[in-house]
Amino acid sequence: MLEPKTILTVDDSRTMRDLLGNALREAGYSVVQAGDGQEALGALDSIKPDLIITDINMPRMGGFNFIDQVRRNPRHRATPILVLTTESAPELKERARKSGATGWIVKPFDPARLLDAIRKVGV
């Protein structure tokens, strides 16, 4: 049987984690969740997700710093990362690009848009 693909979501908001988690599981993914960048890095020590979805504004370790750390890690540097952003403004996309993110998802999103973005990074 085909192993479901694993997605690591990183968000300090439980609401957002739940929305993401439910939508992704409904779509057949296996989901691992972390509350901030630090926690997510810890999780990456033991799992190898097929995709990371991360928020930007988080306590302890924010999204940009987290992405930077992932891209420096030989084991995970090729993992696609989607950032969650509240603004669709071009400068925010630009920041997401500069940070090393693979792509982004503009909040609020519906499941279809979420899955679109995931598909676009090949997961």
Partner: peptide, 12 residues
């Protein structure tokens, strides 16, 4: 470097 993949984009 950002883990994008041309093949995925072509598929899209």
């Amino acid at each position: 470097a950002k883990a994008n993949d041309p093949i995925v984009l072509l598929r899209e």
